[in-house]
Design a binder for these strands. Structure first.
Lengths: 238, 238
DNA sequence: AAAAATAGAGCGATCGTTCGTTTTTGTGTT
DNA sequence: AACACAAAAACGAACGATCGCTCTATTTTT
């Protein structure tokens, strides 16, 4: 799957999620008509992410959000009941999209090697499309309430588990040489996250998302395919 | 060098830095006596890091800082002229300590393999000791002014360069098999940073800093020592 | 004209910062 | 040892600005 194809899948999933949010939050959203609500919600989310990523969510005043989104203070409060609820809505929306898009990208029938490559690439593509959200989520998790923080951690562990599963499957088939699948998945995830958090560094060096994906795949494969030039050889790791 | 030895070196360097800060900032610090100034500065920095890491620096009110540090509002403003200057002082202090401690840890006379291991371990030990500061720096860089942001980026690139140099030396001596030293250094740094940022994850799994260091060293070595079981063999990589 | 959506002034709370006052400290004199 | 007295340090109430949020009036849509 190329980056452009991936983009289309994500866009479709995004629309689904806006419908879901509208359906669930009808208690706190005062807007009746879905078309209006979805359009303005997307607008508000985009403006909030842009402003938050400059100085942090707490520092973003609702007056600034009003200015950037083009909606009045009163209008904003037709879409959420408090600033904190807006924070939760944004976090929720991103988690949903992450789950939805990633689960569609990995074919459990293919080989562990192929699955690992697909998972790395899919993660990076997703981060690229949802850049603002990932950065936001990364920076603002600590400002959530206990319950939402727990959800955020579970989401992190769930994405990590995708890699743990792939690595363990590779271990069972004797194609990966991994001493600790959980820690390995952890450091792989750390590399992927760096693409979002240290974006300025890679932009300055003119490294594209595909460049980075190729490199990470190569690096990880060197680390876990083992030093044996015939990785197909079984019973080596016992 | 063990973790306990490392701790002592860092503590000594910390005292040096407090002297330096007092000497340089005498324009904005209204306190005359160094003993008083150093003691309270350390107190303020510690309180500010603790509070900031809960909800972010911007969300930390100076009244809360006053409460936690035990100093009154007026007293606080004897040590800095504005909240923003406090932010800059904290960032500066951490960057200094990082530079000072790390440069003393790596012996340029040893082999690339040993240097790489030492550098990884030293980085993780430093992160462990300065945990609050690193987390703070990670989260608050974007809130600095342009000039301070530039310094922060340079500091990041400088620490990365330590790894680039080691990798390139290993390349020249044909002991490392690295396709791109800069990207390799980048992902190594990402793994090290994860120890600080995702601290809750490793704490929950009861992984110590030495456990993590051993794992990262093993992972990186698997990746770059090449698949050749005789890594001493020269001219292989040409 | 009824319903839906938006507008924006106004409210109390809290923010960073200032400044006149009080307390503590260090030193020389009795 | 007790005191006086500046200098140094700490204190905390008060100020204007801005915050999140509300509420009624107005505009837009159906």
């Amino acid at each position: 799957m190329t980056f452009d194809e991936f983009k289309q899948v994500a866009t479709l999933s995004m629309e689904e999620i806006c419908h879901e949010i509208f359906a669930e939050k009808q208690a706190s959203i005062k807007i009746k008509k879905e078309a209006v609500a979805v359009k303005n919600l997307a607008n508000i989310f985009h403006a909030a992410l842009t402003l938050s990523n400059e100085r942090g969510f707490q520092s973003m005043s609702l007056r600034a959000l009003s200015r950037t989104s083009g909606l009045s203070m009163g209008a904003l409060y037709s879409y959420f009941t408090s600033k904190e609820e807006l924070l939760e809505m944004i976090q929720n929306q991103g988690r949903r999209l992450t789950r939805k898009v990633l689960s569609r990208q990995i074919d459990p029938q293919s080989t562990p090697g192929a699955m690992l490559r697909d998972a790395i690439r899919a993660h990076l593509y997703l981060t690229e499309i949802m850049q603002k959200w990932f950065y936001f989520s990364y920076m603002e998790t600590k400002n959530l309430d206990k319950n939402q923080q727990k959800k955020s951690m579970e989401s992190e562990l769930a994405t990590e588990q995708v890699f743990v599963d792939i690595l363990e499957q590779g271990l069972r088939q004797h194609v990966f040489h991994v001493t600790d699948p959980v820690l390995s998945a952890s450091v792989i995830k750390a590399m992927l996250q760096d693409w979002d958090v240290k974006r300025w560094k890679y932009a300055r060096r003119q490294i594209s998302v595909d460049d980075y994906a190729d490199f990470v795949i190569g690096f990880v494969e060197s680390a876990i395919l083992g030093r044996n030039p015939e990785p197909d050889l079984p019973n080596k790791s016992i």
